[in-house]
Structures are given as structure tokens and as C-alpha cells.
């Protein structure tokens, strides 16, 4: 039904000029930091926003991810993997946020909005995502919203591909059930 988005590939989308800028970055060059931030910021914030469903919080997380990535640059063995290294940090930070935020499951108390059905749908989607565990939610978002391949999701989440498959199956099934329940209640 949906193919994997060919253009966006945070894992293999690393360009060779990153190597040059990373080297300068290690020497403490602010211009190199600026270049790398400008290059990766949109994609990183978008990913974080899709996971957290809050673009302002996503910006915070993305900034933290950049800071952590530059701090731990010495751990990066292969400079060509900088993008996936950065995304992995960002996803981990998002996961931490989700875990700390996840207090009680959302309830469907009949969503009413004067801004029309689109806003209503968005609220329902956000509430449904909140009911999923951070791991399932992350897998679902990376695959369905970010349209990453199974391999990319596995690499970013640092889990075997089989785990991605089973998590995605569970997440989809649970989402369908929740979607049905939500529609019954709002109908």
C-alpha cells in the first residue's frame, strides 16, 4: 500500500562532506557546528515532533540531541554514521520523555471541537498514540509517519529487525482496536 520513502533516509543519507565538518567540529570550530545543525535540524525536529506530538517540546529535545551528539562525538567510530548517531540519540531522548510523561492512559470523553473534524481527528490520533507504550508508539511513528524502512527503524531503535516486525504488528493491531473504540464512542 505504502512504499518506503526513498528520499528521506537518515541512516544512509550521510554525505561525505559531513566528514570534513565533523573534523572541524572536533577542533572546536563553531562554524562547523552551525553547518551541521542547519543541515540536520529540520529532519530531527520533525521526527521528534511526530513522536512527541508537540513541536515546541520537539525543539527542546532536538537541541539536547545536538548537544549530546557533539559532546559524545569522540564515541563515533565512523563519521559517515553521524546522521544515524544523531537520530538514535534523539529517539532515545524522545523515549525518555515519553516514559516520564506516561502517567495515566487517555480517556475518550467525546472529543468536541469547534475547529472542525480535522482538529478532532488530530486530537483522537494523539490520544490513541498516548495509550500505546513508548516502544510501540515509537515503532509505529517511525514506520507509519516517518516512513522509514524496517532496517532503518531497527538501526535507530537499536533492536533486531524481528523485534521491529513484532512490535509493529502489535502496535498496528492495537491502534486499529483503539480507533474502532474511539469512533464508537464519538459516534
Amino acid at each position: 500500500m505504502f512504499g518506503t520513502r526513498a528520499v528521506v533516509n537518515p541512516v544512509s543519507d550521510t554525505l561525505s562532506d559531513d566528514l570534513h565538518w565533523l573534523e572541524r567540529c572536533r577542533q572546536g570550530d563553531d562554524a562547523a557546528v552551525t553547518y551541521l545543525v542547519n543541515k540536520h535540524r529540520n529532519r530531527l525536529v520533525r521526527t521528534a515532533a511526530n513522536i512527541l506530538r508537540d513541536r515546541f517540546e520537539a525543539e527542546d529535545v532536538a537541541q539536547d540531541a545536538f548537544l549530546k551528539a557533539f559532546r559524545e562525538l569522540h564515541r563515533l567510530r565512523d563519521d559517515r554514521a553521524f546522521a544515524s548517531f544523531l537520530y538514535r540519540i534523539c529517539v532515545r531522548l524522545c523515549m525518555d520523555r515519553l516514559r516520564s510523561k506516561r502517567a495515566e492512559p487517555a480517556e475518550f470523553d467525546g472529543v468536541e471541537s469547534s475547529d472542525g473534524p480535522q482538529i478532532e481527528t488530530r486530537i483522537v490520533v494523539e490520544e490513541l498514540l498516548e495509550t500505546l507504550t513508548p516502544e510501540l508508539r515509537m515503532t509505529l511513528v517511525l514506520r507509519e509517519m516517518e516512513q522509514l524502512s524496517y532496517e532503518e527503524v531497527a538501526e535507530i531503535m537499536h533492536v533486531p529487525i524481528g523485534t521491529v516486525r513484532s512490535r509493529l504488528h502489535t502496535a498496528r493491531e492495537r491502534f486499529r482496536h483503539l480507533w474502532l473504540d474511539a469512533n464508537k464512542e464519538t459516534a
Binding site: 505504502f2 520533525r46 515532533a49 511526530n50 513541536r55 481527528t121 488530530r122 490520533v125 490513541l128 498514540l129 509505529l140 507509519e144 509517519m145 516517518e146 516512513q147 498496528r172 491502534f175 486499529r176 482496536h177 480507533w179 474502532l180 469512533n183
Partner: peptide, 13 residues
Amino acid sequence: ADWGLSVLREQAF
């Protein structure tokens, strides 16, 4: 309900 997953995709930033 599979339609819900398509809606989810549309809700991406």
C-alpha cells in the same frame, strides 16, 4: 479501522 493508520500518516508534521 485500517483507515485510522492512514489518518495517522496524514497527521505527520
